[in-house]
C-alpha cells in the first residue's frame, strides 16, 4: 500500500579527503517513521543536510515526492514539503512564541516571498488560527506573547516542532530531537512525537537514545563511516551482529 516518498539513490559526499557518505541508498516509505542510527561521525547529519539542500551531494540523486532535489535551495525544498528540526533548537529567539509560528503560517499562505508591506496581520484570521493551533498542539498556548528565548530547552524544541507543524510538511526530518534533554523532557518529547505521528506525516529521525529508536520506528537504517551497514525493522536491527559490532558494542550505555 505504501510507496517511497523520499528516494536517496547512490549518494556520495566528501569533505576534503573525508568520505562522509559513500554510495548511500535509502527509501523512506510514505507515512512511516524511519530512524537513522550510527556512531558519532557516521554521516547521519550529513545525510539530512543533503536532503534539505544545505549540502549538494557530489554524486547520486535524491527524489522527493516525484521531484529531484538537484540544485534546489533549502527554502524551495521546504516549500515542496520537507521540514527540519535541528540538532540545537532553531527558533526565532527575540520574537514571541506567536510570531514564531506566524512566520511559517504566512510562508504557507504566501509562498517564499511576498511584498505585503501594508497588510495588517491581525486581519489574517486563518493564518492566526493556524499559528495558535500549532502552539496548542505542542502545549505552549499559554505563553504566546512571551519571547522565545526565555523558554527551557525542552520547550524550545516544542516550539521548533510547532514551527514545523504549521507547515503541514509531507516529510519531517528530526536531528536528535532529544539531545541534551533531561529525562522527563525526553519522555514528553517522545510522547509528542508519537502524538503527531498518528497524523500520517512521514518522519526521518536521527537519534542516539536506543529506547527512543526502538519504541518509535517502523524502520531503522544503520550508518557507519558513511556507509549503510544494515536496514530493517526494529527487531531485525537489534539482533544484527554487524550493528552490534559497529554501534551497540562500542557504546554501551
Amino acid at each position: 500500500m505504501t510507496k517511497p516518498i523520499l528516494d536517496v539513490s547512490r549518494v556520495s559526499k566528501s569533505f576534503g579527503g573525508l568520505r562522509a557518505l559513500q554510495d548511500v541508498n535509502l527509501q523512506v516509505m510514505e507515512g512511516s517513521i524511519h530512524s537513522l542510527i550510527g556512531p558519532n561521525g557516521a554521516g547521519k547529519s550529513t545525510l539530512l543536510n543533503v536532503m534539505t539542500g544545505l549540502l549538494q551531494p557530489d554524486e547520486g540523486t535524491i527524489t522527493f515526492d516525484g521531484r529531484t532535489l538537484q540544485n534546489v535551495t533549502p527554502h524551495e525544498i521546504n516549500q515542496y514539503g520537507i521540514a527540519k528540526v535541528f540538532q540545537t533548537p532553531a527558533i526565532f529567539p527575540e520574537m514571541t512564541l506567536l510570531e514564531n509560528t506566524l512566520i511559517p503560517a504566512f510562508a504557507r499562505r504566501d509562498g517564499s516571498f511576498r511584498a505585503n508591506l501594508f497588510e495588517t496581520p491581525e486581519h489574517a484570521h486563518e493564518v492566526y488560527e493556524q499559528a495558535e493551533e500549532a502552539l496548542a498542539e505542542v502545549g505552549l498556548q499559554d505563553h504566546m506573547k512571551q519571547e522565545a528565548r526565555y523558554l527551557s530547552r525542552g520547550d524550545k524544541r516544542r516550539l521548533e516542532l510547532a514551527i514545523c507543524l504549521v507547515q503541514k510538511p509531507k516529510l519531517l526530518l528530526l536531528d536528535e530531537p532529544t539531545a541534551g534533554m533531561a529525562r522527563h523532557e525526553t519522555e514528553s518529547t517522545i510522547q509528542l512525537l508519537k502524538q503527531i505521528s498518528s497524523k500520517g506525516m512521514t518522519k526521518v529521525i536521527v537519534e542516539h537514545d536506543m529506547s527512543v529508536v526502538f519504541s518509535l520506528s517502523d524502520r531503522i537504517t544503520v550508518l557507519a563511516q558513511g556507509q549503510i551497514i544494515a536496514e530493517g525493522g526494529p527487531d531485525e536491527v537489534r539482533g544484527n551482529p554487524k550493528v552490534i559490532e559497529a554501534y551497540l558494542g562500542e557504546e554501551q550505555e
Binding site: 533549502p74 527540519k84 535541528f86 527558533i91 526565532f92 520574537m95 506566524l102 512566520i103 508591506l117 514551527i163
Partner: peptide, 23 residues
C-alpha cells in the same frame, strides 16, 4: 506587516527562516 515580521526574523535567525520556506 507580515513583511516586516520576516525582516525581523532575518535578524533573529536566518537559517530558521530559510528552512521555513522563505526566500
Amino acid at each position: 506587516s507580515p513583511f516586516g515580521m520576516m525582516l525581523r526574523a532575518v535578524k533573529s535567525n536566518q537559517t530558521r527562516l530559510e528552512f521555513t520556506g522563505l526566500d
